[in-house]
Design a protein around this nucleic acid. Structure first.
Length: 271
DNA sequence: CACTCTACCTGTGCGC
DNA sequence: TGCGCACAGGTAGAGT
């Protein structure tokens, strides 16, 4: 499931490849499944066709593609969320369509931007500015500063796992990195934010930051048998019933806030 | 405010 | 072998 590190990895791929997505002209917009578009499909097609991509950015798990016309007078952004199984590729135009392709932008230089999504949860939509979306989100999890994080943490009284997953608290953390962060911080997922001691809260901040920095460097998570392309090794996610890599105790998997939650009952005590 | 549930999807993997 | 079904997950929106 693409979370912040995986989305960042996609962003890096699109903008550092040669040729890059930046500067490409959109010759044609092809929507293969209407439900991928939030809003009116024809509006998206008509608006973006003929424009040039001049910027790509990310906030949390959201990607934003900035487009402009020749005069730079007409500017618009395409917002995109990969949700669980969405994937983006910059491909030769011959490879424009696959089994699960939901939309594609045909570009100049013989390229195409292709969006595949087996479960079809991913969405794309037009915005005048990324702030339309990001104003509803918390600070980006990779960029948030320690003081900001600690203030927000102590300003609410919620269980840590659901809190980390709340995109309005901090943007970019999903189920994998929430579990990995709490394991590294040695905090039980059901601990209450407002009850953490200062050392514990600081541990949480540094664990979150460390996990994300390492996962970005590894281009995402490496999950047993799952499609993720990255090499970040998970310690607890998906490892229920297997030994903790630190103490050997069997990792527990239980539901917390309707989400599968993995933790070591010894390294992450509740009491 | 904090929480819970449901809808949205479909590939996977289990039990029978 | 084949069938049916629960499950996985991010978000929005409604309800408790």
């Amino acid at each position: 499931m693409p979370e912040l590190p995986e989305v960042e990895s996609v962003l890096q791929c699109l903008t550092t490849s040669n040729p890059s997505l930046i500067g490409r002209l959109v010759r044609e917009v092809r929507i293969l499944r209407d439900s991928v578009v939030e809003g009116d499909v024809n509006t998206v097609v008509q608006t973006v066709t003929g424009l040039t991509c001049y910027a790509v950015c990310r906030h949390g798990k959201y990607l934003f593609f900035g487009f402009q016309g020749h005069s730079a007078s007409k500017r618009v952004w395409l917002a995109l969320h990969l949700r669980m199984t969405g994937r983006l590729f910059l491909v030769p135009e011959q490879e424009i369509e696959e089994r699960h392709t939901r939309f594609a932008l045909l570009l100049d230089q013989g390229l195409a931007l292709r969006f595949d999504d087996p479960r079809a949860f991913g969405r794309v939509w037009l915005v005048d500015d990324p702030s339309e979306v990001t104003s509803k989100l918390g600070p980006d999890a990779l960029l948030i500063r320690q003081n900001t994080f600690l203030d927000r943490l102590h300003g609410t009284r919620r269980q840590l796992k659901p809190l980390l997953l709340d995109q309005s608290f901090v943007a970019g953390v999903g189920n994998i990195y929430a579990d990995e962060t709490l394991f590294r911080a040695q905090l039980h997922p059901a601990r209450l934010s407002a009850d953490l001691s200062s050392p514990e809260a600081e541990r949480l901040y540094h664990a979150l930051h460390g996990v994300l920095v390492q996962a970005v460097a590894a281009k995402g998570a490496n999950i047993d048998g799952v499609f993720e392309a990255g090499s970040f090794p998970v310690a607890v996610y998906g490892r229920g019933g297997r030994p903790c890599i630190v103490c050997g105790t069997l990792i527990v998997k239980e539901r917390l806030g309707q989400r599968g939650t993995h933790f070591c009952p010894v390294c992450q005590p509740l009491g």
